Computed example of a mutant assay.
Amino acid sequence: MDFIKTTEQDSHYNNLENMSLSELLTNINNEDKSVPLAVEKALPQIEALTQQVILKLKQGGRLFYLGAGTSGRLGILDASECPPTFGVSHSLVIGLIAGGDTAIRKAVEFAEDSTTQGWQDLKSYNITKKDIVIGIAASGTTPYVVHALKLCNTNNIITGCITCNNNSPLSHAAQFPIEAIVGPEFVTGSSRMKAGTAQKLILNMITTSSMVQLGKVKGNKMVDMQLSNNKLVNRGTQMLVDQLNISKEEASTLLNKYGNVRKALKHYKNGN
């Protein structure tokens, strides 16, 4: 297989240590501008995978993210934001990282090199063919992710991936691959930069689109969000003011009574 890691190729810039702060920031920003365009080119792949995610979630399945290092952390970040944003269970979208929870904050040496642990981590959640697994790896070669996806395929579990290299082992292992080719990083090989940004954009698209399709958004509002702080309580109150044309005092009373924007809207309109 002819496979070249563009994520590992030399930066287009050299002698970074000799640049002024202004030059560093400007050049990083110029590189970052290419990321949305790379994601745009992958839109057909993103749509194909997201359709599978929606199908599985509607059928009662779960979405698993699997990654190492930055990729694993991004998956966990996206998964952790679904319950407060859309009011879904913490068990609906699950992020797993090589090395376990310790690796979220500190790198765990050689954890990503295991060819067996990824599948073991998925099995600990009693994964079945009702679920879907998305492997995340900028390089497209991470053994922890690649081998887990292969075993998912063997067990009739739908697989997808997000990578930033063409024709990678991960893309070949995934049934629904996404390849966002962002090119060399500003600091050679530092895939937490452009590659990480591309992965975050794609993860945003997958879960947001899925939750909209699952009915977790009304109009353009997060009516199922968890009211876990004053900012969100105020946001929920304003939603009720705008939707029902009532005072803030009425809206606040309604929200306190039902604890959820959607429930408050439903009961108010039903006269309860």
Rank of each mutant, 00 (worst) to 15 (best):
E109Q: 11
G95Y: 04
G87N: 00
E109V: 01
F110Q: 15
T116Y: 14
K123G: 08
A107S: 04
P83V: 06
Y125H: 12
L92K: 11
D101P: 07
L96Q: 10
Y125I: 00
G100M: 09
A111L: 08
V93M: 00
D101R: 15
D101C: 11
I97E: 07
E81W: 05
S124F: 08
A98Y: 08
T102R: 15
K106R: 14
A111Q: 02
G95I: 09
G87M: 03
T85W: 05
C82R: 08
T115R: 15
G100D: 06
S114M: 07
T102V: 15
A98E: 01
K106N: 13
E81Q: 07
K106M: 12
A98I: 00
S114K: 06
L122S: 03
A107E: 12
L92I: 13
Q117I: 03
V108N: 00
T85S: 11
I94L: 14
E109P: 05
K106C: 12
F86S: 01
C82D: 13
V88C: 12
L122F: 02
Q117E: 15
I97T: 07
P83A: 00
T85G: 11
L122M: 07
E81T: 04
G99H: 08
F86G: 04
E109D: 11
V88S: 09
W119L: 10
T102H: 12
I97K: 03
E112F: 07
Q120F: 14
W119P: 07
K123Y: 03
A107T: 01
L96K: 13
I94M: 12
E112R: 08
I104T: 14
G118I: 00
G95Q: 07
I104F: 14
S114G: 10
I97Q: 03
G99C: 07
T85M: 10
A98C: 02
A103F: 02
L122A: 01
C82I: 11
E81N: 09
E112N: 04
E81C: 03
D113F: 06
E109A: 08
E109L: 10
Q117P: 05
G99S: 07
P84E: 03
P84C: 04
C82S: 09
